[in-house]
Design a protein around this nucleic acid. Sequence first.
DNA 1: ACCTGAACACCGTTCAAGT
DNA 2: ACCTGAACACCGTTCAAGT
Lengths: 223, 223
Amino acid sequence: MVSKAQRTERRTDALSKERIVETAIEILDTDGENALTFRALAARLATGSGAIYWHVANKNELLIAAADHIVAHVIDDVAGGSAPQEKIRALALGVFDAIDAHPWVGTQLSRAPWQTAVLQIFEGLGGQLRALGVPGRAQFDAGSALLNYVLGVAGQNAANARRPHPDRSAFLDAAAEHWEQLDPAQYPFLRQVAPQLRDHDDREQFVAGIDLILAGIGTVVGD
Amino acid sequence: MVSKAQRTERRTDALSKERIVETAIEILDTDGENALTFRALAARLATGSGAIYWHVANKNELLIAAADHIVAHVIDDVAGGSAPQEKIRALALGVFDAIDAHPWVGTQLSRAPWQTAVLQIFEGLGGQLRALGVPGRAQFDAGSALLNYVLGVAGQNAANARRPHPDRSAFLDAAAEHWEQLDPAQYPFLRQVAPQLRDHDDREQFVAGIDLILAGIGTVVGD
DNA sequence: ACCTGAACACCGTTCAAGT
DNA sequence: ACCTGAACACCGTTCAAGT
């Protein structure tokens, strides 16, 4: 039982789950979600595609591990010692920025609710609610609301990043124009907010949503 | 120029986009997202797989049309003439129930932000904000918060439905047990809410989140 | 124990050929 | 105009065979 726990190290270029995940992240970041195939991965790792299966059960597990890797760094970096509202905002923004930098993470988060990455985000958000004075029973609901909002934005941003965008403002222009030309009887709201769509800031709007939920949580606390 | 606009009708069993979409929905509902292939669809329609492309550009367009079809019915059914908060709750619950009945709709909504189905939901939610007294500038942010929350839940529920669940309560039991065995130092919140996970009602928790955002919106109105 | 790479069982999509 | 179905260019995954 001692004999098997010995030489964990191998030559640096040997295959390992860690190296596979890192290479997968490289492909996802530089070439997009569709570019990650076991053939492309094997080529980049200079091995056979079947070799990857020795370290990783399947593609789903690989994507989960990749998302977990990114989110774990977000959690670490956020730390900070400020007020609970600030911590919630900081963590949410950390996730937002990570998805901005790695859009495929957004897809993955909104696809697998029970993966470690999602649990870490849930813990990070929900863990501040006691300090906010939210009663025990209500903490679960309030934490879920924050989490689902964050995951919703994650999915939408990932979807937006999936389409080819020569220019963000040009794309928003086109979308706003589309909204303005909708049937006034059926879409009064969208027509009205179309101008705001044109020059809104995704990140600011994301925080505004967090603040809205925090304000709602404030009313539960009863102050 | 008159000659081509004539006989729009054909025999009932002829191919049409409508019939293709309806058949796709049947497959999605009964056999799940993975079962929808052009080959399976063609077989069910008793035609060649290439024939479908005469009516539908590709699989993505087919999924969008299918989701739009389901959501359009939700929008129609919700109508009602109650207070704006009630209308928002009713629409949100309509979407929730539709995803419960057709989990693939959740996947699709969280995947394509600009499709008609999402715009209709956004309009339905946002359109009530003026009546709630939300100032013009804030309506866009508040509507987006509601929409993103709904889409977040949509994605999570669809993901949950994707996994084989012999029994819902058995599955929640296992998840709760997993949470209870997490590291207390790292996951105090999840450990604390684990018992609530075990017997919570998804639908009630969903409404609780809507109400939390509505409460936050109430603070913006300033009453 | 770990790696190789051909083979299997699929996909979405295209397109020449039919009616 | 609309349909057929073989063919193309891929996939994820498996597995006998190597080291």
